[in-house]
């Protein structure tokens, strides 16, 4: 995955634990007065339509990354505890539609 996206070792372990697949995509947030901004999010699941993503395989992991997020210097890490552990994307600015 190298240049595509950086994943910490603890995030890799978490993804493997969840099935070995991760999707990194843009999640829209609507403003109350209109407007839209996209937030980069990571989930340990497969995307609904894999053909819309760049696919990367490495170290038993299959990654699906939204084209706009490939090679952006982003880092995926895991935080939280017990059942509240979740992946997050660090280093991303918000983007528009």
């Amino acid at each position: 995955m190298g240049d595509a996206i950086d994943i910490t070792s603890s995030a890799k372990a978490f993804i493997k634990q969840q099935g070995g697949v991760m999707t990194v995509r843009l999640s829209p947030r609507h403003g109350c007065c209109g407007g839209l901004a996209n937030v980069a999010v990571a989930e340990a699941t497969s995307p609904a339509d894999p053909s819309l993503y760049h696919r990367h395989c490495d170290e038993d992991l299959t990654l699906f990354i939204a084209p706009a997020l490939v090679g952006q210097g982003l880092r995926v890490d895991v935080e939280g505890f017990w059942k509240l552990r979740h992946l997050y994307v660090d280093g991303a600015a918000l983007s528009a539609r």
Binding site: G31, A37, A93, L94
Partner: peptide, 11 residues
């Protein structure tokens, strides 16, 4: 979220 986007805020 929109103001943050317009100022290149950390998502």
């Amino acid at each position: 979220f929109v103001w943050s986007y317009l100022t290149r805020g950390d998502a």
